[in-house]
Design a protein around this nucleic acid. Sequence first.
RNA 1: GGGGAGAUACCAGAGUGGCCAAAUGGGACCGACUGUAACUCGGUUGGGAAACCUUCGGAGGUUCGAAUCCUCCUCUCCCCA
Length: 429
Amino acid sequence: MNQGLFLSLQERGLVQDFVPGLDALLEREKVAVYAGFDPTADSLHIGNLVPIMLLVHFQRAGHRPIALVGGATGRVGDPTGRSAERNVLSREQMEHHLACQQAQLKRFLDFDPASPAGARLVNNEEWFGPWSFLDFIADVGRHIPINYMLAKDSVKLRLENGMSFMEFCYQLIQGYDFVHLHRHYGCKVQVGGSDQWGNITTGTELIRRMDGSEAWALTAPLTKKSDGSKFGKSEGGNIWLDPQKTSPYRFYQFWLNVSDDEARRYLPVYTLLSMQEIAEAVSIHDQAPHQRHAQRLLADDVTRRVHGEQALAQARAASDLLFGKVSRDQMMSLDHEVLMQALEGVPVHQVSKSLLVEGCEWVPLLSDHSGIFGSRSEARKMIEGGGLSLNREKCSDVLARASTEDLFAGRLVLVQKGKKNFHLLVFED
RNA sequence: GGGGAGAUACCAGAGUGGCCAAAUGGGACCGACUGUAACUCGGUUGGGAAACCUUCGGAGGUUCGAAUCCUCCUCUCCCCA
């Protein structure tokens, strides 16, 4: 616990690059530290979690975090890691995105204005909004050599295929954010993902040239999955923090499904557990890898922090229902409310109850009537292959007919296509 | 502007008059195994219970019969100006 913040971040695998002297600075004084967030979507996603966790660690060590949402930078567009110019968002869209992201950030950081380490939330639109282009190039542009800007990877890589002047200027905009925060909030450190290194150092460079003052930077390694594929995506796309976009159940499942190796690496990065606690957990995990102790710990911790205790409980209940050893009878006896919560996010298909009375066969019911299967053959083949379960009981008879006995809660049937694809069939009057 | 090659299912890619709903590989999905894993193995991958129907860039044509031959059109790639 007495270990310095910097060393502890290093130990957790949160340090990729840093400006020398940062270590000493953090021991010497309490500073303000900022991280920026791009308003490209109406929710943050788990890729944003790393810079957020960095800010959290800083705050816990008594430093003041500043979360910057990029109203201005969002209008320009960061060229980093992009091969083509991206679409520009409308102003209304961006306002909406910013508001959503701000609300999410408040879950992680303590914004108590009375505390010396109370977090601040700023929008760079505030200082860029009223500024004219001429003023900007006169006040800021004169201080930076174009060779310096051209040398950045984000620019170099794009010179071949061309990039707009707007995107070229991006690093200056972000760089000036740092200058502004340095002047008005005494911000001395910027943190971000390692892809932001170029943009961040433009900021420290500007501070040096414009104010003759020193500033520091720290970047965290970009999280990569062990197979090298991109982190934060699943079948359904990005894993968002917004429960409307990624249900707590999906979110929980994402973490629960990471590999052993990933779980080991993610625990220090995405949770606040001490290294000792993590070491103990990993040791328990290694004794019985199939129990996936590490994944459970990770999923519990992250889901709890992002979605809260209640959502976590529901996500776990849903996981038990869908993957646990819940039999048909047990399921039938479950409380309707609990069940519906557990099944939140499962696609719902409505069909007429009259089909049931007629004793309709399952095959047309699951294809023509509900659209769960694209065609009858597909449904039939799935049944023949043993891949269909109704209410967690395998259905192997192609000619089976639906009856009222198959319903739970009077009107529902849980259809399971293979192991992981669930659909809820609702019989309407 | 001139010459050549090509367009086949989710992708890649065989097939050049009937045996073609179309080889093979990849992907995807399912099953067994398993840890809601990896690996491996097996299956499925246009519709239809079936007869059979609709598909091989588009539109016509030849033929008993066309992915396959002919005509036109659209698009792609390559070479020469």
